[in-house]
Each structure stands twice: as C-alpha cells, then as structure tokens.
Design a protein around this nucleic acid. Structure first.
Lengths: 240, 240
DNA sequence: AGGCCGCGTTGACCTCGATCAAACGTCATG
DNA sequence: CATGACGTTTGATCGAGGTCAACGCGGCCT
C-alpha cells in the first residue's frame, strides 16, 4: 500500500502521506521533496517515549509513519487528559509557536519522519499548497476536538467507550473488511490511556468493556484485540 | 478604540479586526479591502438567533463585531454541548467544507460583518497573508478546544465554574483594570448556556456560583454582573 | 390588577462513576 | 522456581453531581 521512494539514499518516507491525501509531502514538487527529505531523519520510538522535546521549545515537526501518538495535557496535581491522537499519516507539530503546554508521547511503538521546524516553515513560505494542506489538517483536528468535547461533556461512560471503539475502528482496519459491518483491531491504548482519553478511571473503562463483552457487542482477546461483529450495534450504543 | 472607515458609503467595519491582530481585514491591501467590503453586509442578530443557515450549506463567513456567538452540537436525544465561543473580532466559518454538524447561535445580541463564502475564498487565493491569518486563528481555536477538553474531562464542577469565569474575564473587561487583580463583567451566557458549555446541569452551575459568592470569591448583581475582587483567588480554584 | 412565562435558586433524594481494596495473568528477572 | 512489576479485572463502598420538585423574581401580556 505504501511505496517508499529513496533519494540520495535518504528514504522519503512521507510519500505515505500522499496515499491518504494528507500531510506534507503530497503538496510538494519533486525537487522540493528531495530538499526536505535531506533535512529529515527517520525516527523510531518505543511506546511511552516523549516526543518533540517534552513540550518546551518545539523545534521539530514530524510525520507519523506508523503507530499512534497521544497528545496529553496534565494538571498540576497529576490529573491527565489526552487531547488528541495522531495516526499515520498525520502531521505533528504546532506552526507559529515555539512552545506549548502539550505533551506528545508514543502510545504504541512509533516511527516518525522528523524535520527541523525551520525547514518546514521555509517550505511553507515557498509552497502555498503545503500551507493549504496543513491548514486543512488543523481544521480537521479542530472538528475532531469539538466532536470529543461532546463526548467528554455529555455522554455516559458506556457511550464514551462505544464512541471510542468506533473511532479506533474507523482509523484502523479499513483494509480487509470490504465495507462490511464487522471490524477487528488491536487497541493502540492501554486501559489507563483510554481512561485519560475519555475522562474516566481505568476501573470504569474495564467495567464498561466487560459489559459490552457480556452483551455480545464485542469480544476481547488478550486484553488488546477487539472483534466487533456488528458496527451498527456498537453505533447504537454511542449515543449520537 | 475602534475606528470605522467608510468606502463608497459602505462601512468597512471589520477594521476592528486589525485592532486585535486577528480576523480578515488586517491582512488585506486597501483596494482588496474595498472589494471585500462591497460584497459584505452588516448584520444584527438578537440573542437566540441561529446564524449561518442552521448548520447546513454554509455559504456565509462573518466577522464578529460585537457580542458573543456560541457554537453548539446536539445529540439526537437533545443533550447539547457548546464547543466554542466566538468573541469580537473572531472569524466565523468553516473553510473547505460546505456543511458541518455545528450550529452557530447568537448568545447575546450580536452584530456581524458577513461575507459570501465565495468572496472570502477568492480573496484567500489572492492573499497568502489572509490565509495565514485564518490558519493562525484555526490553530488558536484548536488550542482553546484542547484546553477545554481538559476542563470537561478532568475538572470538578467547582473548578469548571472557576475556569469559565476566568476565561470570560480574560475576554471581556481588559480595558479599565490596568493589570489589577480585580475584574468585573457581565456574563454573556445564561445558566443554561454555561451548563452546556461545561458539561453540567443548570442546578449545579447555580449552586457552584452561590458557593463562590458565599466564599467571597465573587459577588453577583442582577444574576448577570459578576465582580471578582481577586483574580488570583479565583485562579486558585480553577485547578490548573 | 392577575396570570403567565422565562430564568434562577434551593432542597430532597438518588444514581453513576470514583475510590479503595484485593486478586489475577503474564511477563522478565534473580 | 520464586519474585516482583505491570496491566487488568472484580468487588464493596462512597460521594459528587444529576434528577425531580417547589418556589422566587421580574417582565410582559390582556
């Protein structure tokens, strides 16, 4: 599905963006791509690793090539909230700002294509098309954030879990089910992460998952692998 | 503070944007401004009016000149969540999309400077500077949305109310208090709106406000006018 | 006047989800 | 093997906030 091309021995991995019409590279001319690729480096990170310099001095942009990155915010007493999840081939970084109170952390093992901030911003000046793409992604993220505000503010725990599973199912597994009503995927988050994402506790997350299993809406293998026989039955529990 | 200029008898009201370095007009050359102003029209709306065509077929962009606009989402059973508040001189509209499940409604009496979508998008093509500004506003809104996700997901009712009052205080009343620790303002929202904004019920909102008043953190006049003797004491209750 | 409606407050009660606590399975380690 | 760390599940209990209900207040109608 993804074809990696190489230039000067440097893999222009972010070609994968183009496949889903998002991200940086689809917007650039070939010679611009090469120039950007020269300043980039591929980066692997294990689950749990902090990315992008621990929320201070953001000098790196990156494309997510595989895995899931969680964006978190933490209150002074330790309460935490996940405010965004970035899947491949999302773009990671905050233009026009050098600092942020956001933390980016690898939720699963992650591979990134990282660029120095300066290179991307230079490229953005040169290519209105690139800027347009980043603008679009920001608007998409804004839409997603607002959707989750409804989930956080107005849905019950059961509805939150159902909504979360649906969201994951939409991001993963679009491959082998030819528009069937079923889905199967590995959860990219631990129970603790799911709790931080939904504004719940791990116990509540666990109980609600158990309840969905007892009701035959999902089945769970190895605590991580989820099988959804009928997405529409799951949707009926999401409360939209 | 705001100076309205006139061109061909059409008031280019959105000059007010420039005053706060945001919005459409500051990014345009004078002749572009005139062209845009010709296609614009000022619009007044009473509190409660639906704006931008009831969430379908968004064909209008607008600058908020005065008042507050609430962006809401509603679940099928009627539960509602406010996902954004737009103050002057924010820009209202969703580029690159013709529909949205968002509702825009006047929270207070509002005056707008409305443009046909086509005119703004044409102008955006011509002026990278304009697009850049809109991009920046989208990123700012994203930051705000993520801040509120923390509030919605992880704060107690008391902390939510304190955070809300602080947010309002920052948006209104920056004028007469020369960086003092005090503030005073009229709430632009009803109790029901505050509840929808914070993911609470009106009763809880009312109780928490009463509690803040009992603790002398705020005083309330006419149910709408709030006086905050010490913003830092209020901040201590916001739980950040 | 009286009555009604929209908005806000207050009280009594209950429920959903948090909290506290214990135990389980699966690893990697000594 | 035992040991411990980690993620997860399950149970018992508690409390913050929701629900239901009554009432107060001011404005606007006829």
């Amino acid at each position: 599905m993804r074809k990696d091309i190489h230039t000067d021995g440097i893999p222009v991995l972010c070609v994968s963006c183009e496949a889903r019409h998002r991200g940086v590279c689809g917007a650039l001319e070939p010679e611009q791509l090469v120039s950007l690729a020269k300043s980039s480096h591929k980066q692997q990170a294990q689950s749990g690793t902090e990315l992008l310099g621990d929320a201070e001095r953001i000098d790196t942009y990156a494309n997510v090539l595989s895995g899931v990155v969680k964006l978190t915010k933490t209150l002074s007493d330790g309460r935490q909230q996940i405010v965004g999840l970035q899947f491949a081939p999302d773009f990671l970084g905050r233009p026009f700002k050098t600092e942020s109170d956001l933390n980016a952390e690898a939720a699963t093992d992650v591979s990134l294509c990282a660029f120095p901030k300066a290179a991307v911003e230079r490229m953005m000046q040169a290519s209105p098309e690139l800027e347009r793409r980043l603008y679009r992604q920001a608007l998409d993220e804004l839409d997603e954030a607002r959707d989750w505000m409804v989930t956080l503010g107005r849905k019950t725990a059961a509805e939150k879990i159902a909504s979360f599973l649906l969201m994951i199912a939409r991001h993963i597994d679009p491959t082998d089910n030819p528009d069937g009503d079923a889905a199967a995927f590995d959860l990219p988050l631990t129970r603790a992460d799911i709790a931080d994402f939904l504004g719940l506790t791990i116990e509540t997350v666990s109980r609600q998952l158990t309840r969905l299993r007892a009701d035959k809406v999902i089945s769970i293998e190895n605590n991580r692998h989820i099988v959804v026989p009928s997405l529409s039955r799951l949707e009926a529990r999401a409360g939209n």
